[in-house]
Design a protein around this nucleic acid. Structure first.
Lengths: 207, 207, 207, 207
DNA sequence: AATGAATGAGCGTTCATTCAT
DNA sequence: GATGAATGAACGCTCATTCAT
């Protein structure tokens, strides 16, 4: 196997050098480092070293360090949106659907906590255009949940004296802040927290 | 009014060169810039230029750029803690006290949104020792609210099947995320949002 | 020859922009400037300007300004040690070997006066760890000479009533201070001073 | 006793705040710090803090940080010169006088090692004019010793085949390098080293 | 596809010195 | 005599990005 002068492997899959393709490896490593140290305290050199590639390789796949951040966001938004749609569109009663959606968003947020932490810490560092894109996607996500609440309000299952918008902001605030306290090795699993949070949401909407 | 060659006022109180002492002026300017651009995208040069002083003056009062961030946190934590204590210790019924505390923390957070935004975006950039101090203070704050919920649970005013800890994390998550959507010129004032959020909290705790 | 807007050569080997590789060029330039102006009065900017590269290039090869100093030391210590070993290990009589070693160390010190001047002026500015390394290497050097003197004392060629250690400190003191008075264009050459100093050393050791 | 807001004594002789006048205290403190840390790594702030005065006070007595260094030199040169004159002008035989002078210069150098260390490390940082003054004084000192050697050479007490100049440079080199190895708590006292060094000098001059 | 030397602008910080009080 | 807030120029160093190979 070829070895460069610096002793790092240049080809083939060495031990610890997973078979994952380079772009995915870079994204995974960047996600971990950004979550651990913050976006701006992580240098491109650190990322490529940890991924076992060179700067040139990184700039071959990603236009900039910024781009790496954007791709992390895009990936997580894509995943979450897909999951949510399927939960919201079942033919269960509206309160059960809202509960399922709420519990699921909490569980998946807990499962991908690094992404959420990076998201809320670093989105302001993104280029304004990309920030706008990300925000728009997130808004579509929120609106799907708001529609669910309004459906329940119209049918009398939920109280109608609270703005659905406000309830969405209330609930997603709680979800997005999981990163400050939730620990994988804590008392509750992500699914358990999801059930509890969904219970609290539903309780606050009881007529 | 006299103006030096560099264009800065050398005597009298010009616009932006107010009579406010230099340290306070630096803190106010830094808060605004950190909220607008982020801590790491704000240079010390920008801060001192905006405050109308030189770097030397800033380093006379603050040990580092980090220190500026810490002082912003310390100030807001001190204020919030004081307000909260007085609301939690009144002799009203426990549900009224929790409502008052919850509404107040939302209203003051909305009133000092810059501080909160900076706080959750940039705390990881603070020196670990200072981070620990800040976290400890914030924990004391949360624990006062948890005690209030537990008091209500023991007296049967609140449902007892939900962990008070979890409810605190749920609610404060919502509060701490105000910065992502609340706007001073939006539909609702900070006090109005406070009342709505407190209502939702109390509703979710109904037995 | 092409010249960029900044006035630096972009192709071909200009005066001062020789074909010597960048790290060597930096080391040579730094040695000269440190000797002329002192380590701390020489800025990194001066060094890179004189070497015709940018700061980034320098920091690509050297970890710090300190490192540059250390490399200067390491290089001269390596050279001196090698020369000395070969002179000390010949099979001539011990007094001739000591004379040869003494004369050679003076001559090579005179030939590389800049390094010696920098060495004794600036070693205290080096990182403590690197200082320790340098001191250890220098001690090995002194001990080889001490062994030579002790050998002569045991065989009766040298007087035995003076501590070999002290004689080494005495002699090397004289050598290391060449920088304060020796001039390349002075009355005596480095080799001539070497012979005289070695004579004085041997005379002082006569039984 | 008056105490400033920062808690430092502002008047009277506190414990550790010797009765020595301010300029002397500053000089003593500066000498210690320069020897310990080097001239350029010692800030004016450190000096005035250690001396228990303020910057204003220091600049009242000394024109600059440079001045402090110069005064340290001037003081030590004045002292050494005075001692040497009296030893060189006795009416003992010339070899005894040279021995006495040599032993004395070593002993006083050992007794004031800090000054010597600073001297040879930092003289190049002095303003050229002051450097010239210091060098001139030092040259007068060396010339007195050279005259002594030449006197002995003329009278046949010392070998005449070695340049007196060179012998002076040889010997003073050894003396000025005491700082790199002599320790107050080492095997030999300054006086003992003085006797040994003088012995070696005289031995090397035997016809 | 990938390298890694080199760029260049900018960063946070230091510090001897000044001066109104 | 003495203060200490403020200056301002310089410093060592970092880093995302480029480009000849």
């Amino acid at each position: 196997m070829a070895r460069a002068a610096n002793g790092r492997t240049t080809a083939g899959a060495a031990v610890g050098d997973s078979v994952e393709p380079v772009p995915q490896r870079l994204l995974a490593v960047a996600t971990r480092l950004f979550a651990e140290q913050g976006f701006e305290m992580t240098s491109v050199q650190q990322i490529v070293d940890a991924a076992g590639v060179t700067k040139g390789a990184m700039y071959h796949y990603f236009g900039s360090k910024d781009d790496l951040l954007y791709e992390i966001y895009a990936r997580v938004l894509r995943d979450q949106h897909a999951r949510m749609e399927s939960a919201a569109d079942s033919d269960a009663p509206v309160d059960e659907r809202l509960h399922a959606v709420a519990a699921d968003v909490v569980a998946t947020t807990a499962a991908n906590l690094d992404d959420t932490v990076i998201f809320f810490r670093s989105m302001h560092l993104l280029h304004p255009d990309k920030q706008a894109e990300v925000r728009a996607e997130r808004r579509r996500y929120h609106e799907r949940v708001r529609a669910l609440i309004e459906e329940g309000q119209r049918s009398g299952v939920f109280r109608a004296d609270k703005s659905a918008d406000l309830v969405v902001d209330f609930f997603f605030g709680a979800v997005h802040h999981l990163g400050t306290w939730f620990r994988k090795d804590g008392k509750l699993t992500g699914e358990e927290v999801g059930k509890e949070f969904a219970d609290l949401l539903l309780a606050s909407l009881r007529p």
